[in-house]
Amino acid sequence: MESTGLRLAEAPSVEVDRWIAAAPERVWELISDVTAMPAMSTELQAAEWLDGANGPALGARFRGYNRNDVLGEWSTDSQVIECVPGQVFAWAVSDPDNPNAVWRFRLEPEDGGTRLRQYAQLGPGPSGLTLAIARMPEKEDRILRRRLRDVEQFLADTLDHVKARAEA
């Protein structure tokens, strides 16, 4: 039997973008400081660098403390998997080889400002979504579509905050 719905094993994703009237260097300062990101996020409540790291670098790890009305509160450890100042900042949540999520910012100079894109991938590794899907496997598509919709709104809100701060 072939499934036509979303599957966590296929790592569904969403991306949102904004044009920002600020140089990529200014936008980079905002999006690459994970300890400042909670002020621009609706889900991330706090973040701290781990293992002596004090800023963005390939392989650096950080812990994020999250909260939302549907999933409650949780924390995750992430590892920076792409870090090119002024261009890309990405991290894998939990195991970089089998992440439960991947988050990525891309910056591109555009029309005297910056095109900022934020991407989020769910799965394929285990997460809270895995538990929900295991309890209701027939609702996997619906569970994933709802989470993707929530994440898309979360990304849009974050980019709106970054835009406001960068342009202030």
Rank of each mutant, 00 (worst) to 15 (best):
L148I: 03
A120W: 09
E152D: 10
A156G: 06
L107S: 00
F154W: 12
P85F: 03
P24G: 04
L6V: 01
T158G: 05
G128D: 11
E140D: 06
S41Y: 07
A60D: 01
G55V: 09
I143A: 10
T4Y: 14
I31Q: 01
R63S: 04
Q118R: 15
R67H: 14
V151Q: 09
R106M: 04
V84H: 12
N68D: 14
E108Q: 13
P137F: 10
S3H: 13
I143N: 10
Q121S: 09
D33R: 09
L8G: 02
V70S: 03
D111I: 02
A36S: 14
Y65G: 04
N66F: 13
A9Q: 12
V84E: 15
N54C: 10
Q79V: 10
V102S: 06
E25R: 11
T4R: 13
P109T: 10
E43A: 09
W91T: 06
R117C: 12
R61Y: 05
L144T: 11
R26T: 15
S13C: 09
P24C: 01
G5F: 06
D157N: 10
L8I: 07
F62R: 03
S41V: 07
Q79S: 10
D160C: 02
A46G: 12
G86Q: 02
L8T: 02
I20P: 01
Y65F: 15
Q121H: 03
M136W: 13
E82T: 05
R146C: 05
G86M: 01
Q118N: 12
D150E: 13
R26E: 14
T4N: 12
N54L: 07
V16E: 14
T4W: 13
D97Q: 14
R7V: 01
P126A: 11
P96Y: 01
S3D: 10
L155A: 09
E82Q: 11
I20M: 03
N68S: 09
A53R: 12
L58G: 00
Q153C: 00
S41I: 01
E110P: 07
H161F: 04
P38Q: 08
S3R: 13
S3A: 13
R7F: 08
W91R: 09
V151P: 08
E108P: 02
S13V: 02
V27S: 01
T130K: 05
R18F: 11
V151R: 03
G64N: 04
G5V: 04
D141S: 10
P126Q: 12
P109D: 12
T42V: 14
C83M: 00
E25S: 14
I133T: 07
E48V: 12
T158L: 06
D157M: 07
L148T: 04
